[in-house]
Nucleic acid binder design. Structure first.
Length: 344
DNA sequence: GGTAGACCTGGACGC
DNA sequence: GCGTCCAGGTCTACC
């Protein structure tokens, strides 16, 4: 099992009232956590309802709580856009409406998941011992969604499609099916909302194409308890059992399943796709057919064992940054919609 | 078990 | 401005 061992999650301190009717929470973070670096570590930070603002180094998005949506603005006061200044400082989370104790706990749990604040620092150090290239920058955490369901939908919307279409699908899913927080920003659709949406509506209004039926079926599985998220996220559940289970879901093949594995903190699996072939040829210098290059890419990362995905992904990410500049400086409107391997 | 072709969308390209 | 081609991962039918 390669899942990161769970540890007591850092908690929020008491809330303070904010000027706009919401409140401010403080969330302690692990000593190595750096908001700009760790948010801008995986492409999902460019997908709705996430908004990373390089100018203010804040992440804005709507969370779906049991009493409705709330918009949060997440900052790490003192953290610089690039470099490491401000590492380990607590997060300042501003909401757009007041929260009671239960909803504060829900918001905290979702932020902890999204930013992987409960990932054991020892696990990241073990990765750095195996792959020293990232020790200096401290890269190790990978951004994900506040819920497994959102990761599942985002993964399906990134299959067999160019990146700008993935961006458009997530934008439309939020605008068409997401409820609005008091600030007016939409949430990501809940499993219940997507489960009762007609596939034809999804196709017509969200441009998801043939993924329409698969997305509704997945939402029904999650909404009706057919997918046991706690079991998937339990570090004691063997990787192979999780993989086998996911390959049985509609729309989930080898690539999507391997990607969901890393999103669950199980880094031993490589979601290889055409981008991996490009990377193998351009960066690693492999020759031959796509199948041959993919085989060599797989073999290349084999020595990284339980940390294969992170070694692969940060190498890929470093290549993107060599073309586009540091990821925390990427502006969604400029980079997000045109970000495809073919145009790098 | 392996493989070919269909499934959709939107960008690129040619006219 | 319009039509055509193409990329992209999963699924199904077929061998």
């Amino acid at each position: 099992v390669s899942a990161a061992p769970a540890r007591a999650a850092p908690g929020p301190r008491r809330a303070a009232p904010a000027a706009d009717g919401g409140e401010v929470l403080r969330i302690d973070v692990p000593g190595d956590f750096h908001l700009p670096r760790d948010v801008c570590s995986y492409g999902y930070f460019l997908l709705e309802p996430n908004h990373w603002d390089p100018a203010t180094t804040t992440l804005r998005r709507v969370l779906s709580l049991s009493d409705g949506p709330v918009r949060v603005l997440i900052a790490q006061p003192g953290a610089t856009l690039t470099g490491s200044r401000g590492r380990g400082r607590p997060l300042r989370v501003q909401t757009d409406r007041p929260l009671d104790a239960q909803r504060r706990g829900e918001a905290r749990a979702q932020i902890v998941r999204m930013l992987r604040l409960d990932e054991d620092e020892a696990h990241i150090r073990a990765f750095h011992r195996l792959d020293g290239r990232w020790r200096r920058s401290g890269r190790g955490r990978l951004f994900r969604s506040p819920t497994f369901f959102e990761d599942l939908v985002k993964t399906v919307t990134s299959c067999n499609i160019a990146w700008p279409s993935t961006v458009a699908m997530n934008l439309r899913l939020c605008r068409v099916l997401g409820r609005r927080a008091p600030s007016g920003d939409p949430e990501f659709p809940t499993p219940a909302r997507l489960a009762r949406t007609r596939p034809s509506t999804l196709r017509a209004r969200c441009s998801v194409g043939y993924r329409d039926r698969r997305l509704v079926e997945l939402a029904r599985l999650v909404d009706r308890g057919g997918i046991d998220v706690a079991w998937l996220e339990d570090p004691s559940t063997p990787d192979e059992a999780v993989l086998r289970e996911m390959l049985g879901w509609p729309g989930i093949g080898p690539y999507a399943a391997a990607n969901l594995m890393q999103l669950l903190g199980r880094y031993a699996h490589l979601p290889l796709d055409t981008e991996s072939v490009r990377h193998g040829r351009l960066v690693l210098g492999f020759r031959g057919s796509a199948a041959e290059v993919m085989r060599r890419v797989r073999a290349h990362f084999e020595p990284f064992g339980a940390h294969r995905f992170r070694a692969y992904w940060f190498e890929l990410w470093a290549f993107y940054e060599s073309r586009r500049g540091p990821s925390p400086t990427w502006e969604k409107a400029r980079v997000g919609s045109s970000f495809t391997a073919a145009r790098l």
